[in-house]
């Protein structure tokens, strides 16, 4: 299982949790597992073609998965996945 850090804007979709445990061998599987546990997150994470929405940044530990293998990036037990949306408040 990996820990997924949920940003404030998505917390209402996961019952208010800041972190959710989800299983999977790669980043895509973990996020799919999250979306099946909490269906309200699905449309916010994934686009209609099944890819990650372009405005959602996902990090495996401290590295952007875009510079790794994207959704295919391998995940090990204990890894932390961070979902990061841009914020504009000032």
């Amino acid at each position: 299982m990996s820990t997924v850090k949920i940003p404030p804007v998505l917390r209402s979709s996961v019952g208010g949790a800041k972190e959710v445990e989800a299983g999977g061998d790669n980043v895509g599987e973990v996020l799919r597992s999250l979306a099946s546990q909490h269906p309200a997150t699905e449309s916010q994470l994934f686009s209609e073609d099944g890819g990650l929405n372009r405005y959602v940044n996902v990090y495996l530990n401290d590295e952007d998965v875009r510079v790794l293998d994207g959704l295919d990036t391998e995940v090990r037990s204990g890894d932390m996945i961070v979902i990061l949306p841009a914020m504009a408040g000032g």
């Binding site: 804007v9 405005y55 940044n57 949306p85 504009a88 000032g90």
Partner: peptide, 14 residues
């Protein structure tokens, strides 16, 4: 860092 801004429902203002 952010190639695309999020849609309004994911980007609430203060």
């Amino acid at each position: 860092l952010y190639p695309t801004p999020p849609p309004a429902d994911l980007a609430p203002s203060c």
